[in-house]
Simulated scan of single mutants.
Amino acid sequence: MSMRVTFLGTSGAIPTTQRAPSAVLVNREGERLLFDCGEGTQRQMMRYGTGFDISHIFVTHLHGDHILGLPGLVQSLDFNDRTDALAIHVPPRSREDIRDLVHAGGHQPGFPVRIHEVSPGSVAYAGDDFEVRTVQTDHRTRSMGFALVEDDRPGRFDREHAEELGVPVGPKFGRLHEGESVELDDGRVVHPEQVVGDSRPGRRLVYTGDTRPVDAVEDAAADANLLIHDATFADDEDARARQTGHSTAREAGRLAARAGVDRLALTHVSSRYAADWKRLEREAREVFDGDCFVASDGQTIDIPVPE
């Protein structure tokens, strides 16, 4: 079961020659989900070969560096004869603004574009075996993050014990693993709990967008496989981080440590660190001893199914 994360844009509000505005694409089992859509996102998708067959876009807030790529992307999808509907999930009271942006210049997409307002603390999208949940964040405007949370997986099937109980090799193994009791030829009934272990958690990915470090993100990121957190500033700009509704790399690291995440990706890097972005990584690593890195445009991360 594949899950690949591609960082399309990792800059702060001002892009640089190396970093485009915010955008992250998640390809889960062939379903492409786009989180934020800064200016030039469509070109980044071409450059890094993610494919354009996205089904859902999740917008954290309406600042330009997170949404100005929407009209160009929608028009390019239209030019490529898209017919499938596209869902855009946005914060409360922002539907009309996003609608106007999608229709910039009077463009009328030839495919359905459905804009859904979702509140923090709800489910934005329910897939077949996962959900994208909204998470309350703290920025200078209506904002929210997102948590992609897979359903729990069945526990391990104890084939040896099943055979000892007399279950014949074949379809009854599968039925037991799926939670169904089976009757044997001699009339005995074997129940799933006799041969299947405890359920195992699925994967969890959290993307904050722009935010101060907040309890809701920490709760959503508990034991997450990957946390993508605002790390706009280094320690020397702590006051500015508070003033502008962003986080420092150290603050992101502390939150990741408390949440017990496996990997921390620092993003939304201020242009002032264009030549010294490793500083952010060093400061976060002083308080978080897991896998920690400053994300770069074009970087891909595979999240394996946990053992």
Rank of each mutant, 00 (worst) to 15 (best):
V102L: 02
L33Y: 07
I228F: 08
L266H: 11
L148V: 07
M45E: 08
G30T: 04
N80L: 12
S119H: 05
H56D: 15
L34P: 06
R43Y: 14
D129H: 09
D198M: 06
Q299A: 15
V196M: 03
H89I: 06
E31L: 12
R279E: 15
R19T: 14
H116A: 03
H268A: 11
T232C: 13
Q75M: 15
P91D: 06
F173Q: 00
A239N: 14
I54D: 00
S76V: 06
A23M: 10
A259Y: 06
E150T: 09
A20G: 12
V26L: 15
R133P: 03
F288T: 14
F288V: 13
P192H: 01
G170V: 01
P91S: 06
V195E: 03
T211W: 03
P21F: 03
V113R: 01
C292P: 06
S119P: 02
H116G: 02
A216L: 01
R156W: 13
D223I: 09
T17Y: 11
L255Q: 04
V206T: 14
R99Q: 04
D36I: 11
A274Q: 11
R263V: 11
P120Y: 02
G155W: 03
S296F: 10
R43Q: 15
A224T: 08
D129Y: 03
P71C: 03
S247N: 07
V102N: 00
T137K: 03
R159P: 01
H63E: 13
V305D: 12
H246C: 14
V294K: 07
P15D: 05
R263E: 14
Q42K: 12
D100Q: 10
D289I: 09
A126Q: 07
D291I: 14
L184V: 01
L73Q: 05
G155C: 05
G202T: 10
I115S: 00
L226H: 13
G51P: 04
Q44W: 06
P201K: 08
D238I: 15
L73R: 03
A241H: 08
G245Q: 11
E164A: 05
A234K: 05
R212F: 04
R188N: 00
G127I: 07
V189S: 02
L70R: 01
L62K: 03
E160Y: 05
V182L: 01
L264C: 11
A147V: 04
H89F: 13
Y125Q: 08
R153T: 05
V90R: 00
R250E: 10
G9Q: 09
P168V: 02
G9E: 10
G49W: 12
G127E: 00
F288C: 12
R19V: 12
V102R: 00
P201I: 13
A124W: 00
E251K: 09
T16Q: 08
D97P: 01
R203T: 13
L25C: 13
L25R: 10
R240W: 11
R242M: 15
D97Q: 10
I98S: 03
M45S: 06
T300L: 06
T6H: 11
T41G: 02
L255T: 07
E218D: 04
P171S: 02
